[in-house]
C-alpha cells in the first residue's frame, strides 16, 4: 500500500486565466478513501481555493460527477485503490461548460428536462375526494428502473452525440420521459412522443450505448431511447396505413 497518491486536478480560475490547467497534489493514500475524500483533503489541508460540488457522499444526490482518468464517475463512489499507482486525473464532466475548477454548468439539462414534461399528466384530474391513484407493484415495476435517475449527468458526459451536437436532448431527459410514459397514472405518452420526435429528440441518438455503461444507478437510458424509437417507428407505420390512428 503506497503512503500517498498524486492527483492531477483541473484548475480554471476565470478571473486569472483564460484556459484550464492541471495542478498536481499529493494526498495520503487510504484504502477506504474515494476520490471525493482526496479532494476534500486537498480543500481542507492543501488548497482551500479548489472548487467542486458534492453533498451526500453516498451516491444519492448526483452532484459529485467528474471525469476520473477520462471516464465519467461519481467521485464519492470511485475508490482511490482502483486507480493505483496514479497519478489520478480528475477533470470536470465532459461537454459541459466549466464555471470554475471542477464545477460545470448544467443549466442546459434543466431546460431539456422541463421540455419532456417529467410529471404525471391526466386528461382529466380526479376530484380529491375520490382518493389517490392506486398502482399495483407490477405497474410500479414497469417504470421503476427509469425513476432511479439522480441527474448526475454522467450519461451526458459519456455521449459523443451530445458532445458533437449540443442541442440533442440527451439520455437522462429521454429516460425520464419514458419513466412517465410507462407510469399507469400518466396519460401524456403521445404528447411526449411528439416532443421527442422533434429534430433534437431521440432520433439524434446513434446508439453508442456508453450512457448506460456509465450510469451509476443502472437506469439504462440507452434502452429507454431504443424503446421509444421502436414506439415512434411503429407509430409512423401506423400513420401510413389507411385505418391508422390520427
Amino acid at each position: 500500500m503506497p503512503p500517498s497518491v498524486t492527483l492531477a486536478v483541473t484548475r480554471y480560475r476565470p478571473e486569472q486565466e483564460s484556459e484550464p490547467t492541471l495542478q498536481t497534489y499529493e494526498v495520503p493514500f487510504r484504502k477506504d478513501w474515494v476520490v471525493l475524500d482526496a479532494l476534500n483533503y486537498i480543500k481542507d489541508n492543501l488548497d482551500g481555493s479548489l472548487s467542486f460540488r458534492w453533498s451526500c457522499r453516498m451516491g444519492v444526490c448526483g452532484s459529485c460527477g467528474m471525469m476520473v482518468n477520462g471516464s465519467p464517475k461519481l467521485t464519492c463512489a470511485a475508490f482511490l485503490s482502483d486507480y493505483l499507482p496514479g497519478p489520478i486525473r480528475v477533470e470536470p464532466l465532459n461537454y459541459f461548460p466549466i464555471i470554475r475548477d471542477l464545477v460545470v454548468d448544467m443549466t442546459d439539462f434543466m431546460h431539456k428536462l422541463k421540455k419532456v414534461k417529467p410529471w404525471i399528466i391526466r386528461a382529466q384530474e380526479k376530484p380529491l375526494a375520490d382518493g389517490e391513484y392506486l398502482q399495483t407493484p407490477d405497474q410500479l415495476e414497469m417504470y421503476k428502473q427509469f425513476s432511479m435517475c439522480i441527474n448526475c449527468m454522467l450519461c451526458y458526459s459519456a455521449c459523443p452525440v451530445y458532445g458533437l451536437e449540443q442541442s440533442f436532448i440527451g439520455p437522462a431527459a429521454i429516460a425520464l420521459a419514458q419513466r412517465y410514459n410507462l407510469d399507469s397514472r400518466d396519460e401524456a405518452a403521445r404528447e411526449r412522443l411528439e416532443i421527442l420526435s422533434e429534430h433534437d429528440g431521440m432520433w439524434q441518438c446513434t446508439f453508442v450505448g456508453e450512457c448506460s455503461k456509465v450510469c451509476p444507478k443502472n437506469v439504462d437510458p440507452a434502452g429507454a431511447i431504443q424503446q421509444l424509437k421502436l414506439v415512434g417507428a411503429v407509430d409512423w407505420f401506423r400513420f401510413l396505413l389507411p385505418w391508422g390512428t390520427r
Binding site: P14, Y95, P97, I98, I99, T107
Partner: peptide
C-alpha cells in the same frame, strides 16, 4: 453568467 470555458471535442 460568468465567463465559462468550453472545451473542444
Amino acid at each position: 453568467h460568468p465567463k465559462w470555458y468550453r472545451r473542444r471535442m
